[in-house]
Design a protein around this nucleic acid. Sequence first.
DNA 1: CAACGACGTGGGAGCGCTCCCATCCGGGGC
DNA 2: GCCCCGGATGGGAGCGCTCCCACGTCGTTG
Lengths: 343, 343
Amino acid sequence: MSGRQSGRPTLEQVAARAGVGRGTVSRVINGSPRVSEQTRTAVARAVAELGYVPNQAARALAGSRTDAIALVIPEVEARLFAEPYFLDLIRGVSAELAEADKQLLLTLVRSEQERQRFEQYLAAQRVDGVLLASVHGDDPLPDRIRELGLPVVMNGRRSEAEPVPYVDSDNIGAGRAAVAHLVGRGRGRIATVTGPLDMYVARARLGGYRAGLAEAGLAPDEALVSTGDFTEEGGRRAMRLLLDRRPDLDAVFAASDVMAAGARSVLREAGRRVPEDVALVGVDDSPVARLMDPPLTSVRQPIEEMGRTMARMLIQEIHEIIAGPDEPRRHVLPTELVVRRSC
Amino acid sequence: MSGRQSGRPTLEQVAARAGVGRGTVSRVINGSPRVSEQTRTAVARAVAELGYVPNQAARALAGSRTDAIALVIPEVEARLFAEPYFLDLIRGVSAELAEADKQLLLTLVRSEQERQRFEQYLAAQRVDGVLLASVHGDDPLPDRIRELGLPVVMNGRRSEAEPVPYVDSDNIGAGRAAVAHLVGRGRGRIATVTGPLDMYVARARLGGYRAGLAEAGLAPDEALVSTGDFTEEGGRRAMRLLLDRRPDLDAVFAASDVMAAGARSVLREAGRRVPEDVALVGVDDSPVARLMDPPLTSVRQPIEEMGRTMARMLIQEIHEIIAGPDEPRRHVLPTELVVRRSC
DNA sequence: CAACGACGTGGGAGCGCTCCCATCCGGGGC
DNA sequence: GCCCCGGATGGGAGCGCTCCCACGTCGTTG
């Protein structure tokens, strides 16, 4: 407000003002315990008077840490997924990082070229760690980043046996809960619209669906399984196929709300009433679920909580770079069925 | 891949390998013209062989620029607005920044405390400029940032006479287009559900609504104007009020799709058919518009394009910090009516 | 009563880059 | 043949911080 004269004040100037050495001010700023109470107070006053804020670039250069982490979102996915998904995730990550006083660098990767540029950024030591959202089964990026010696945490995993630390939601449980609910409503010919099967999340939900059938003593039937791609149009196509193959189906578990919306429109065109003729369950509990007619029963994932957990894990890892071959950390958060009128 | 021995290579090492001085390598890296073709090639080879990537912190410290910009989103708004709004905006900003080789620092501000912390970050010289999304009429932040000497560009404006550079969509045109369309369909008692009137965007859409009525030769009627808050519940409340006051209304222009959804549910409860009894138009052309029953006619804003424009303007400004009292830049992008079955 | 930790402190030595000045070289003008 | 000029180049001087070692100054201990 007042003390500024030319540019921003430096450590040196604060030291001079407080009548101490540079090192001492640094210690105070960084909360070192080896400073007398008296000195600490004097320095704090000088800091306040000058409005001193440490220069981040200098810190990063001298201390080789940036207090920033990167969140990588593949652009393609950003379109497919229920839209608010990434916003919720960002919200969680951001909240946790704010508490830890770290910055969030957001990177939307939209092409192979941009992915390479991103690796350059990492090499430029701009961040202390990386958060990866929505990885495909064959994505090499997680491993590449680890080779660079940077901590990584992923949202979701690439396969059952994922070596890289991750946070996932209980997708198997999601499928089981949906099927169990449908069975409980007296449905016996339950179909499913899956996601693209090169994504573990899609396979897991399908696995949950099958497990649910098995638990209910229902026989699996491949004619009741149709592959979508997490888009509305994909859901529509898959639903048409299902009606062709098994016109007698009485329930559908769609692996996402968006696909459920697609399926719902096909059902309407085919003259099937929801839920009277066909019960419908989705996954995500996104806003569209609430707005559908009838409102869609859906399995909720704790997206924001996943974001928080990821950030926490990453910060944890950053602090442990010294530690040896850390056993990979995993977190699988529970999902929850939100019942509405569609079944 | 191979040349790495201990840590990442530095300028100095590249210089040694290429048999030139540090300054020359720096010139090559930064594309200075004062380097002979021969030298340039030699340096480029050394860079490639060593896999050299300039250290960002050192650059920032020595050159006092960070090649990063901050995008600030108030968390409260992130919930109110049609959800995909900010993702679209981020997408546009991100795309433009990637082209300019700049980093995006995303900041969700959820409290006064966090806002202050954010100002600290700015003072720490972490970014070259700031993008501000969704500002309220009395938000002092834009001015504060300018006081810090940082370029700013806002999304939307705080008032008609906004001194800070901004990118906005043609909200007045949006209101006019909606009303004109309704009039064209033979509606004469057109109501509106507005946003919170402390936001310019809400006032502008209301202004457009009034202009539209005037242009059609319809008399304004304050009983047909009801204030919402951009939430579904707010839309519901406002719609109930409207039905109370003017049961004979035959059309509603809601200033957002989300509020339109709220209004729609009230209309259904009141036994009014859409569009037969009451025609409905929203704003945003969000996914919910497409999924509503009937699908909602809505005014589309070019959100991603706004993001791109903002980023472009900011980069522009950053390059012109030398220039004098730059006349504030403004961009107002056109909106477009997307006709669906709700009217 | 000398020797010795422990604590608090000051400040040198970088971190890896950009900026800029000094230097070198060759060619053209007189 | 000498001088001058401009383009190409080398490298010193920081940028503002953290790290760490060295230096008092005490209160303890044998």
